[in-house]
Measured scan of single mutants.
Amino acid sequence: QGDIVVALYPYDGIHPDDLSFKKGEKMKVLEEHGEWWKAKSLLTKKEGFIPSNYVAKLN
């Protein structure tokens, strides 16, 4: 089961498979690959890669 993270900063995706998000948006982490994680937005239901240093895990 994936962790839920919250965006600390907004992110505008650079690549087509990036997931753009707004500050405060919550996402479910699907896979962790070093600095880039695959996640699904709980708001938009879209999936893509996010920079892990832009988010914090919720406990």
Rank of each mutant, 00 (worst) to 15 (best):
G24W: 07
W36N: 06
G2W: 13
W36F: 10
K46Q: 11
N59S: 14
E25L: 01
L8G: 02
A39L: 06
L58M: 11
Q1F: 13
P10Y: 08
I50G: 00
D12G: 08
A56T: 12
K22L: 10
P16Q: 10
G48V: 00
S52G: 07
G34H: 05
H33P: 04
V55H: 01
P10D: 15
E47T: 13
D3K: 14
P51W: 04
G13N: 04
E35C: 15
K45A: 13
G2A: 10
S20C: 08
V55G: 02
D12T: 15
N59Q: 11
V6C: 09
G24R: 04
K46L: 11
L58R: 05
L19E: 01
I14R: 12
G48H: 01
K23D: 04
V55Y: 03
L58A: 08
V5T: 02
S20Q: 06
K26F: 15
F49I: 08
V5Y: 14
A56V: 15
D17W: 15
N53L: 09
T44G: 03
K26M: 15
K46F: 07
Q1G: 12
W36G: 03
H15P: 11
D17K: 11
D12K: 14
P51Y: 04
L8I: 09
I50V: 08
A7I: 01
E47F: 07
L30F: 07
V29S: 01
L43Q: 09
P51C: 07
D17F: 12
V29T: 04
Q1E: 13
H33N: 12
K23R: 11
N59P: 13
E31H: 08
P10I: 06
H15G: 13
H15S: 10
I4L: 09
E35R: 12
L43C: 12
L43W: 15
N53Q: 11
N59A: 12
E32Q: 14
W37P: 05
V5D: 00
L43R: 12
S52V: 09
Q1S: 12
Y54D: 02
D3V: 14
K45W: 14
S41E: 02
G24L: 03
G34M: 05
K28L: 15
K26L: 15
G13E: 04
I4Y: 09
V5M: 05
I4H: 05
E31C: 13
S52C: 12
K40H: 08
A7H: 01
P10L: 07
W36K: 11
D18N: 09
G24Y: 06
N59T: 12
V29K: 04
I50S: 01
K38D: 00
N59G: 13
K40R: 14
A39H: 01
V29C: 04
D3L: 15
G13P: 07
T44P: 00
K46H: 08
N53G: 11
V55C: 08
K45T: 10
V5R: 02
S20D: 05
F21R: 00
M27T: 00
K46V: 06
G2Y: 13
F49R: 13
I50P: 01
K23Q: 10
D3W: 15
V6E: 06
I14S: 10
K28S: 08
K45S: 13
F21Y: 01
Q1W: 14
E31T: 08
K26C: 14
F49T: 07
L58C: 12
A39N: 00
F21H: 00
A56F: 11
W37Y: 15
L58W: 12
K57S: 09
D17R: 14
Y11S: 03
P16M: 08
A7L: 01
M27H: 01
D18K: 09
K40D: 00
N59R: 10
E25S: 03
D3M: 15
K45E: 14
Y54S: 05
K40S: 08
L8Q: 05
K45I: 06
I14E: 09
G34S: 06
V5F: 10
N59F: 11
H33R: 11
A39Y: 02
K45N: 14
W36Q: 07
P16K: 11
K26D: 02
V5L: 05
I4W: 08
G34A: 06
T44H: 04
G34L: 05
P51H: 05
D12C: 14
I4Q: 04
I14W: 08
S41K: 05
G48P: 01
V5E: 00
H15C: 14
L58F: 10
S20K: 07
G34F: 04
F49E: 03
V29G: 00
Y54N: 04
K40G: 04
I14Q: 12
S52T: 07
H33E: 07
E35I: 13
N53C: 14
N53T: 12
A56K: 14
H33A: 09
E25Y: 02
W37S: 07
I4V: 09
P51N: 06
F21T: 00
K57L: 11
L58S: 07
E32K: 15
K22G: 08
D17T: 12
D12A: 13
H15A: 10
S20R: 07
I14T: 12
K23P: 06
E47P: 02
K38Y: 15
K23T: 08
K38V: 11
